[in-house]
Design a protein around this nucleic acid. Structure first.
Lengths: 141, 141
DNA sequence: TATTGTTATACTCTATAACTATA
DNA sequence: TATAGTTATAGAGTATAACAATA
């Protein structure tokens, strides 16, 4: 439902949900000592597919300049390596190490668990509507 | 639809949409020189209802400790006043000034415009599904 | 010339804990 | 004792511009 004013019916709940879920995830993963950006980064890399910084920036919704610091920390802790891309030596392929994959699996499980808990009572149609709206919001320019 | 892995189908697009829409809003309002938190704060206050810091923190999904700085800047720029609540003198009622209401109206219009542009092709059912999912995500503990 | 990614700078956001004032 | 809000501190996120290396 659109509120009478139409003010913030879509975007403000989006903000609240983002803040809230990040906070819950950080608490569930407190023993791993990860920041929200690190969680987001690991969640995106947890499929095991190597990516460039540019691709990861698009996937996470952050900037390359922000990712530099995040990747520095993950690399320093042995969770990730930057490997020069032979096909384009300006860019890196970001690869999780074994420990990085283990941590990413924990993140993935926490995400899956949160989604399971939160969305248990919702229908496939409602989820489809959600995805349609969120996709449209990502595409706005 | 849930992807086969179930990994990040719900939360990762949420993150991307949040980052993307904040960036678009900041660009549309660049002449007002507002940070994302200030935009979020003004959007929430734009209905003209006075709130305590605690209520605003819940509305914006941020912490009181974060809001202090945001409110300091908005107050310094004459957009907002903190008025002691006579009923409970520990807390403030946050009120927009005339200039604050004007700025908040700009924010409101930008939000409304973005939502209008992004969601033009979507059905009421899809929006209802979106709201159901986002509400559920806000409630997770 | 354009693109990838990093660095430098300055500021904002966040968490935590300690603190004041009031309840 | 508990709550509202601020302050202090330290670290993380962000934008911008400049830069080196590669395309």
């Amino acid at each position: 439902m659109i509120s009478k004013s139409g003010l913030t019916s879509v975007l403000l709940p989006l903000q609240r949900a983002t803040h809230r879920t990040l906070h819950v995830l950080a608490a569930a993963l407190a023993d791993l000592d990860l920041t929200p950006s690190e969680i987001n980064t690991l969640a995106n890399l947890s499929d095991g597919r190597a990516r460039s910084v540019r691709e990861l920036a698009a996937d996470t919704g952050t900037r390359a300049t922000t990712l530099t610091g995040v990747l520095d920390r993950l690399e320093r802790r042995g969770h990730l390596t930057r490997q020069l891309d032979p096909a384009d030596r300006r860019s890196f392929r970001l690869c999780l190490t074994d420990s990085g994959q283990a941590v990413a699996a924990r993140v993935r499980d926490a995400v899956t668990g949160l989604e399971h808990d939160a969305l248990a009572g919702l229908s496939a149609d409602q989820l489809a509507g959600y995805h349609a709206v969120v996709s449209a919001l990502q595409e706005v320019r």
